[in-house]
Design a protein around this nucleic acid. Sequence first.
DNA 1: TAGTTATTGCATTGACCGGTGTAGACACTA
DNA 2: TAGTGTCTACACCGGTCAATGCAATAACTA
Lengths: 207, 207
Amino acid sequence: MVDKRSTGQPDKRRAIVNGALLLFARDGYMRASLDAIAAEAGVSNRTIYNHFADKAELFQTVIQESSQRVADTMVDIIDRHLGKIVDLEQDLIELGLAWLGVLTSDLAPHFALVRQVNAETEHIPPAAKEAWWEMGPGRVRRELADRLHQLADRGLLTIDDPARAAGHLMLLISADNLTENSALDDKTERVAMVSAGVRAFLYGYKR
Amino acid sequence: MVDKRSTGQPDKRRAIVNGALLLFARDGYMRASLDAIAAEAGVSNRTIYNHFADKAELFQTVIQESSQRVADTMVDIIDRHLGKIVDLEQDLIELGLAWLGVLTSDLAPHFALVRQVNAETEHIPPAAKEAWWEMGPGRVRRELADRLHQLADRGLLTIDDPARAAGHLMLLISADNLTENSALDDKTERVAMVSAGVRAFLYGYKR
DNA sequence: TAGTTATTGCATTGACCGGTGTAGACACTA
DNA sequence: TAGTGTCTACACCGGTCAATGCAATAACTA
């Protein structure tokens, strides 16, 4: 479905998308001007229109690709920590810490972009938002739900609705907008947050 | 700290704030033009500047007052359902359903506005965001934490960190951006969502 | 090397927006 | 009734922005 148009040089295109990601994430769709994006990407304003039809198409490309990339990382973490279980609680905590690590990694701008998408929800074509969701957060939740379902089959968890359980776990683990995110800087605070979240989830779902 | 300037007629001012709330919530700070807000409020463009210094001050006023009003409602719900407990699980479920009811009430635009605030976070003066948080979400969480703390003292819950527990409960109860919010329309789905959230929380924190 | 394509800088267009000035209409009060 | 302050309609300014046109340059390819 993605229109991988063949025009333009690939590296220029990537520079544009990366720069646009940064500015869209920080400033939002309206504030981020194409001039600023061009400057950030080290590219002529005019070149952007050689790769993308207009600002809206650039934005949709950015959220798609960022969503895809971060989902890949997340799915990777899930596979790594829930592949084979030795101690479920400990494994979940480490999964949570890896999760939190992504929030502060070089992928950090993505999560600011997610906030922009959530705010811009009335002005994004439903199909684009649907596609973004499906290959991003939706895919991660499905993957996690599958893993939890397997663990339930092995008697390690009791779960009625795996999708809901996966959603709950993601909520409890992630630093959300209810916690001051200064907590992310402190290692022990990070461990405390994830541990508390995992336990609240685990004792709610454990056999 | 709030500059309740005495200029202008109060009802005009309220109309402006209400209209601005609607448009800021739907379109965001940048997209919502003062002309559109004036039209929505049934007021002259020029009149807005009779009540507010500029667009930024109007925005801060809007998020403050909306936050305050919704927090009042939420605190009310907490007091009503956790004042005296008969069946903790049932009471929490009903609290959750009341909570969800607010999301779909006439206060609904507020929650879209919250998403705008979260997106606009880099462009709001820290002091304004702090004030918004303190008398809004922060106050609600403190109130809920106090109640949970009392319940823990009475032996109905086991809680290490009441603030964290309150945050977890709010997360699990609320329709979040991980669930397709079409679920809010269906009564049985609403009950299922809140019940599942309450149980996941409760078995994580009970006794 | 010759030819094709991408990129660049710059100028321009048309639209929108925040904010101000002004003068008259309107409402309230003493 | 006279006076004070608010509201309204309208025109205006300076600035920004998305998008396009164009001609010159650079990079790639056959």
